Computed example of a mutant assay.
Amino acid sequence: MIESNPPLQQHYGRLLQESGKGHQNRSSFYDHNHHSVIKECKLPLIDLGGLESCDERQRLACSAAICKAASEWGFFRVVNHGIDSELLRKMRRGQVKLFDMPFENKATCGLLNNSYRWGTPTATRPNQFSWSEAFHIPLSKISEPACWGEFNSLREVINEFAAAMLRLSRLLAGILAENLGNPKDAVEKVCDESTCFLRLNHYPACPKSEEETFGLVPHTDSDFLTILYQDHVGGLQLMKDSKWVAVKPNPDALIVNIGDLFQAWSNGEYKSVEHKVMANNKMERYSTAYFLCPSYNTLIGSCTEPSIYRKFTFGEYRDQIQDDVKKFGHKIGLSRFLVQDTNALMII
């Protein structure tokens, strides 16, 4: 077998053998994730230029569209978002160059603060495995030139990219907070450039059928907001009305989705929706995700009462996720933090 970069095929093949080619001991948690996609959807498309309009009705309509999408879909697309198209192109060029490095270099040279990840080390079954590689970068580390080596120019691009994403995420978070009767800076106060993360994703072409293999396993995001810059290939799917729908790619728009922390903070008004990426058997895919996160000691509590979630810190939430993944092979998430006893609610 020819060794791939990274060695996804070798690891996935071992999981297939150990699990009887994936047909035995499958977790009920993942069974629904193999149902056929019902349709290709067009997410709500919101022109953020409306927020700059001289017409107050247009400004209010734009804000209302953002809040409605956050409540009904948990996902939406934005255009006229204020991020320069050339900056996005530079980000993608640097990302492609980074992933073109030999696997050994990516895995062992400590590049980008040892942030390289590939596959799913905790997977015990094929349906827990992600056919992808990524650099998951804490933005508190990007100012350290020593960890960038020959990619110091990429560090400069990421600095600019992260600053633009922070501005956009704060703008959207402010609108969502105000809609619930809170100060516009309620989320901004606990999220800054040092607490957020950037994830550079690469999904190599997969020789398996794209119906069978996850590029990224089903999950919800553990932040306030995620902003995604993706290419034209597609593969992103989300859960809508208990059915998987495929998101039609639009490289001219950024995708925004609500994270677990915003769902808890909004007391369930905004929805953190399960989503996944399906592997493509012909084309590789790139995406860049910006995660609006607070510090680990930030206390997350619902902004209205009675609260359906107990208060927890971001650090406590992350630790619980890591424990659950080790024990059960998947994230359980917010159901762990419901006010009522959740033992009967968990599907393991």
Rank of each mutant, 00 (worst) to 15 (best):
S140P: 04
N281S: 14
M278D: 01
N113K: 07
N80P: 05
H11W: 05
M91I: 00
K271S: 14
G333W: 10
P102M: 10
F103W: 05
S272Q: 09
T304A: 14
R199Q: 06
S222M: 07
Y30K: 02
G149R: 06
T195L: 06
R89Q: 15
G315D: 02
S53I: 09
S209E: 09
P121T: 08
L345W: 11
I332T: 05
N113R: 11
Y317W: 03
H202D: 00
S242F: 12
L334W: 11
L198S: 00
K282R: 14
Q230Y: 02
T313M: 08
K311I: 00
S169R: 10
V190M: 15
V245F: 04
M278G: 02
E305Y: 02
I308Y: 10
E86S: 14
L334K: 13
Y12R: 08
L200K: 02
Y12D: 11
K189H: 11
L98V: 04
I347A: 08
Q128N: 06
W131C: 08
D252C: 03
A173R: 11
D223P: 00
R199I: 06
F314M: 09
F214V: 08
E72C: 07
N5P: 09
G20N: 10
N33H: 15
C62I: 09
N5Q: 13
G301D: 01
E3N: 09
I227A: 03
I175C: 12
H219F: 06
P249H: 02
R336T: 04
I300C: 05
L334G: 10
C41D: 13
H32L: 09
R59K: 13
W265N: 02
G20H: 00
